[in-house]
Design a binder for these strands. Sequence first.
RNA 1: CGGGACGUAGCGCAGCUUGGUAGCGCGCAGCGUUCGGGACGCUGAGGUCGCGGGUUCAAAUCCCGCCGUCCCGACCA
Length: 474
Amino acid sequence: MALPRQDDDFPAWYQEVVKQAELAEPSLARGTMVIRPYGFAIWEAIQRAVDDRIKATGHQNLYFPMFIPYRLLEREAEHVEGFAPEVAVVTHAGGEELAEPLVVRPTSETIIWDTYARWVQSYRDLPLLYNQWANVVRWELRPRLFLRTTEFLWQEGHTAHETADEAVEESLKILHHVYREAYEEVMAIPVHAGRKSPSERFPGAVETYTLEALMRDRKALQGCTSHYLGQNFAKAYGVSFLNRQGEQELAYATSWGLSTRAVGGVIMTHGDDAGLRLPPALAPVQVVIVPIFRTDDERGRVLEASRRLADELEGLRVRIDDRDDLRPGFKFNHWELRGVPVRIELGPRDLDAERATLVPRLTGEKEEVPLPKLGDRVREALDRSQRGLFEDARAFRDQHTFRPNDLVEMKTLLREPGGFMLTGWCGSEECEAKVKEETKATIRYLPVEPSPPEGPCIVCGKSAVDEASWALAY
RNA sequence: CGGGACGUAGCGCAGCUUGGUAGCGCGCAGCGUUCGGGACGCUGAGGUCGCGGGUUCAAAUCCCGCCGUCCCGACCA
């Protein structure tokens, strides 16, 4: 019943919230999950936020199949090397062994670029600005609900461009105007936009951009990726076009994705010991009205007033919890666990005084509001919750961002209190690997534009080429 | 895949050492009393004891094999 405390056991807290709030549960095949209606509603709200912005930036949705001939995967060397270990392969179907095995897509660059080859002949055919909502499968070793499941839902955008500049611009546009906005304005999760180090890059990418957020256990979560793929996939799959100079040229690619992992980010960014705290823009239920009564007479009065109130809150997602068999205290806990931003208590005492009791999930403080003012106050409380969750998360993140002077200090800070560590980095993979070996921290992001910081590499002491942000990560 | 823990009712667990009628709490159903921070009483339903094999008159319990889950590590959106 009671949740484990976050400070005592964060992973146990997380699992219990997901289960008790009825977001999702593990299913039969290892690492798969059933997303329950309440959890799926949160995902749908994220989808809407992302999809609207994808379309607003000029993209169209389409759909590619989930089965990809194995040989297609093999054409891009880096790509196959990166994904082969975690790919599920179908060898039998229709009661027979297949002449050619099919992979269940771990991502769709291969089939999409193989198709694009037939769609692109001229610079006039470019750009292709397409996105698909799909499920993908990656055979992960250690699954975790929402954060890392064998099958997950996501969108993957795949664009083809005439020039490298245009493709780079596209991948950054998506990062900032689609993903960052969805994260910060809708999910109320503050993020750092950055660039991945070569060792953390997507297999086959020239550059991988990322949004990184800090969870309440002080571990970082990668919120999405946006890749500039250069001409690698065009070359592997033969996507060439006649350019403005009349020469054959390979198209420039981007791909970018945001997955159901984002739901996990919402849980771990905002949740507290009482359960979820959902930003109103995302909350399947924004306002819950809990009627309080003893006698049948009171029940009639209070329920009627509740319905009137719900009507007045038109346009908001309002729910009246009129279950007869449960007492108010139980309902309070029930909806707090589910993160509903605003609760309104309505009982005989309130009605007699022509007021209602309003309780924002953000603060938990009860406020008595005269009925005529309630509509305005509810909307105000929702606005305040949306902003408050974001501000809280940002303050938490900033309080957990440090600039250690040496590796020893960084190691100490990573352990307690934890968070993002900003340091100079010389750019060598050896130094990166050494930090990982000694602290388990990895480079979460580098600035989008490389800008050598003052001071040396925290590992080797040579001059730094980049400011790296290190953290323990999911 | 390596190290550790664990699989018994929907959930959490006891029972196993020393083989012999499968139990407790929560939840669930019915009825009644309750109702402003996780109510209570009575009655009741619910079990291939993870799966397969072995030992035995008899296996949740002992033996062998397998499967799965969780935690820690390597891989990762």
